[in-house]
Each structure stands twice: as structure tokens, then as C-alpha cells.
Design a binder for these strands. Structure first.
Lengths: 219, 219
DNA sequence: CATATCCGAAACTGGTCAGTCTCGTATAGA
DNA sequence: TCTATACGAGACTGACCAGTTTCGGATATG
């Protein structure tokens, strides 16, 4: 019952099921739809609430199709989060208005606000998992946190070079400030992060902390 | 099959199983141990990872004992979070050093830092649930967020009355700033919230934003 | 010391879900 | 057209877990 019925797997390279050039090809155009469905479900239910059936149903795909491409739920989520990074930072048509405040305010767009709240909610639904999985933590950081923080960091550095703000200010802390406050506001205080709030953060916290004198703030 | 087999529940007050003065009494001295065990498990595994068996094992109690006292896992967690509030704010031996910076720095104690990180981690493990349960959200807010924020609010108001900081500054935002930044640092950046970080937050962000001139900051 | 109730331990129930497998159909290449 | 493979649908398996029940033993009251 062990090695009699098989017609000898022998030594030759896999025989019938090698990396064959035959048969129907995997339709990779469905991958983005599946990942998008996964992100949607993630945003609505969090990691533990999300089931593979929900993702399959939303993507109008079969459960088996998903498991043919990702070995486990964790891998699917990891990939889905990583793929959120795409279409994020337009390489170099960032604002450059000449003032730190101008640059920061120019980044406030209805679209980016809406997308930002969604991303923060996704992050919230992943906290349980983030604690155990360094890989997921890195993916979340790279896809959700770092893009925004990098922009702020750039603006701050330019302002320092320009002599607009103090070179002694803590760029890392200030670059992260808006994201941290927004996350807290959405996830803990359950209040909206709108343009008014972001501007009050810029004028009331960020610029003063960066050493911009009050009378030059709205210049 | 509806109202024939029951020997009439009648009007009299429950008969045999009233609030009898007979028999063994429920040992309420175990309640705090169970709630403590629940909080411990919560901090380690989050809401979804926590099982009642884990809590029972850690409290050396029977599962049935837990269900005799709380009707569901959600109720147990709710109560456990609510009971974290106890032993929090000593009514009026808060520091009053005469300066905002002095008051804020005086609140930095190894004990409160350690406890704060733990509470933030518990909050992280509850985010999934907080989104669906307003009750739990309120409990988390009351037990974890509000105590610290209230202290900061008091310090800020006193500083305004004293004329030390601008009466125009946004007290609510500033009162919440340290908690938001600390939560982000622990849960997202996975870096420690130590005294050095808190002081850099006070001197580099909070005091400038409150309108304390740089040369008066370490006075 | 009898009784009503509590206790911890552990067996049990029912539902849910990750992951696998099977089926009938679609499709790309030889 | 033939073949190997992918597809969606959905049945199936096995683990896990909330919540219930059962048990023998402890304990306070009368």
C-alpha cells in the first residue's frame, strides 16, 4: 500500500506536471480585484472578522481560486496591504509653495482625507495582528504610514534649508504628528478628520512647534 | 404545548428559589481576580484571541463560575475594562509646581509609564470591537484615555489662568496630544515611550504650541 | 447535621471558519 | 480537436471556541 501502486515517480523531473506550457493559463487580471475585495472587507470587519468567503463573494471568485494564489489568509492580507501602496505618491508633483504652511495646506484634499480615514480604519482592524507579525507591521508601515510621513519630512527639511523654521526642531516627531493625531481622532475619539481639524493642527501645533513665529504663520 | 404543562408560575414571589438566605454565598472576593486575569489575557492576545478558558485558567476559576457572574464574554471584557479605572486618579495630590512644564514633568513616573504602555496595548487589542460597540468604546475612553487627558486639561487651564500660556490655544487638542503620540509610538512604531520621549514631546511640541516662549521653557 | 447553594473540573453542544477537495465548465496551446 | 489546466460553486473536514450542563466536593445557614 506504500510503493506498489504508483507507477514509479522515478528520478525524472516530475513527468506530467512540470511547469507545463500546456493548458489554460492563470488569469492574473483577477488578482487586483481579489486584493481590492480583501482590503474592502478588511476595512469593514478587521482581520479577525474577515472571512475568505466574504472576500471570494465580493470579488465574485471561488474560494479555491484564492487559495490557489495565496497559501493562507495571512498571506492574502499581507499582499493586500502591500498593494495599497501603489498609486500613492506622485513622484514629483508635490506642492512647493515656498512656505511650510503653504505646502502642508496644499496637501489637504477631499480625496486624500477620505482615503486617509479609510486607511486608518484598516490599520485599526489590523492592530491585533500587527502585535504578532513583524511582516504585517512592516507592510502597514510602508503602505499607510510612511508615504504621508515622508511627504511631511520633505516639507520640513525644505523649510529648514530655507531658514524658515529652526534646524533644531525634531523633524521625525513633527513628521509623524499629523498621522498620529488623525489616527487617534478617527479610531479613539470617533470624530471626523476634516480640513478644519487638519488646519487647526497645522496652525495650532505643528507650526508653533517648528518654531514659526505666530505673526508669520498665515503669511 | 404553550401554557398547559407548567404548574402555574403564579403570582407569588418565585417560591422555592427566591433570594434565599440559605446555602453557600457567592464568593465575591474572587471577582477582582477574575477581572484582573481578563485584563491580563486581553493585553496579551486582544479581544478575539482571548478565550474564556484562558481567563478561567489564569484566575484558577471554573469556566462556569465566570458565566455565573457575567452573561457573556463581551460583558466580562466590558466590566474588566471599566474596573481598570479604579485606583487611578488620586483626587487632589496632583502636582502643582507653579509652571506648566513643572506639572507635566512631575507626572512622568516609571510606574505610570509602564502602566500607560500596558493600557495602550489593551486599547490596541480592542480596536476591532470598539468599532461595533459604543458601550465598549465609552468604557475604554473612560478607563484609559480620559483620566490622563483630564489631568493635562487641568494643568493647561491652570496655566492659562496664571497667564503663563495663551488663552487662545486649543486646550482639547493639546490635552490629548501626549496620549495620541504615545499610542502611535507604542502601537504603530513599536518604540518605547520612555521619560526622554515624553520630555521631548513636552519641550518640543506641547509647550511651543501652548505659546510658551522658548527661553522660558526650562525655567 | 441537613439543605440550598456555591465551587472547580471537565464533558458536551452548536456554530463558525480556515483550508481542502470535487465537480462541471471554460480556455489556451499543441 | 485534444489535453492539461484554471475557473466558480459549493460540499466537506477538522479545529476552535462561546456558552451549557453535569459532577463530586466545599460551605454557610438554620
Amino acid at each position: 500500500m506504500t510503493a506498489m501502486t504508483q507507477p514509479e515517480p522515478s528520478v525524472e523531473p516530475v513527468r506530467g506536471r512540470s511547469t507545463s506550457t500546456l493548458g489554460r493559463k492563470r488569469d492574473h487580471t483577477r488578482d487586483p480585484q481579489i486584493l481590492e475585495a480583501a482590503v474592502d472587507v478588511l476595512a469593514e470587519t478587521g482581520f479577525d472578522g474577515m472571512t475568505i468567503d466574504m472576500v471570494a463573494a465580493r470579488a465574485k471568485a471561488g474560494k479555491a481560486t484564492i487559495y490557489r494564489r495565496w497559501p493562507s489568509k495571512a498571506d492574502l492580507v499581507l499582499d493586500a496591504v502591500a498593494c495599497m501602496k501603489a498609486g500613492e505618491l506622485d513622484p514629483e508633483h508635490l506642492p512647493d509653495t515656498g512656505t511650510l504652511r503653504g505646502d502642508l495646506v496644499a496637501m489637504i484634499r477631499p480625496r486624500s482625507i477620505e482615503e486617509g480615514e479609510r486607511k486608518l480604519r484598516i490599520m485599526g482592524g489590523l492592530f491585533g495582528m500587527i502585535a504578532n507579525s513583524p511582516e504585517l507591521a512592516d507592510a502597514v508601515h510602508a503602505a499607510i504610514i510612511e508615504p504621508r510621513v515622508a511627504v511631511n519630512r520633505l516639507f520640513l527639511r525644505r523649510a529648514i534649508e530655507r531658514g524658515e523654521i529652526s534646524p533644531d526642531c525634531d523633524v521625525e516627531t513633527l513628521a509623524v504628528l499629523a498621522s498620529a493625531m488623525a489616527a487617534f481622532r478617527v479610531l479613539v475619539q470617533k470624530q471626523p478628520v476634516d480640513a478644519e481639524y487638519l488646519i487647526s493642527l497645522i496652525d495650532g501645533v505643528l507650526l508653533p512647534a517648528a518654531g514659526v513665529a505666530a505673526d508669520r504663520r498665515t503669511a
